[in-house]
Amino acid sequence: MIQAVMVISTQAKPRLLKFYNFQPPEKHQDLVRSVFQLLSARPDSVSNFVKVDSIFGPGTKMVYKHLATLYFVFVFDSSENELAMLDLIQVFVETLDKCFKNVCELDIVFNFNKLHTILDEMILGGQVIETSSEQIMKSVEEIERLEKQSSTTSFIPKSITERFTR
């Protein structure tokens, strides 16, 4: 299964963290730091796989892609195929690109919720549930449509309307 998905900026700032195995929240920062140390030590144009047994436990590997100012990192165990994970990163990045029209780091910084929505359409509980970026796009747009419908009902918070009607 996939153990974690991380997006980390080249400034070592986490932009997206999702763990599919429980990791104590107080450990998150250390995990990000040690992963970033590994990543920043690797030059471009080398292989994208790193064994991370010391960070995520025995048998775990990490695959990453360095795009512009971001590292996209997937951590997985022996039940996943290395090259398939690399493809999955590609799917994720493509989907982001389609959703945000030429995605850049700022899009990712300011769209915390949407990022999670996209990721959740692709991976659930560490299992890949969708690998087509078109399909993911469709689902995300559907969710946005549903939510808009739902939120047109009240623009003003209920507490305020209550106060004024009293």
Binding site: K13, P14, L17, E26, Q29, F112, S154, S159, E162
Partner: peptide
Amino acid sequence: PDAATKSVALQKLTYLSSLHF
């Protein structure tokens, strides 16, 4: 008491705990 305020607060808290530890 109202859900809108609460949900925004929750959203901010989730963000802070997830990315700013």
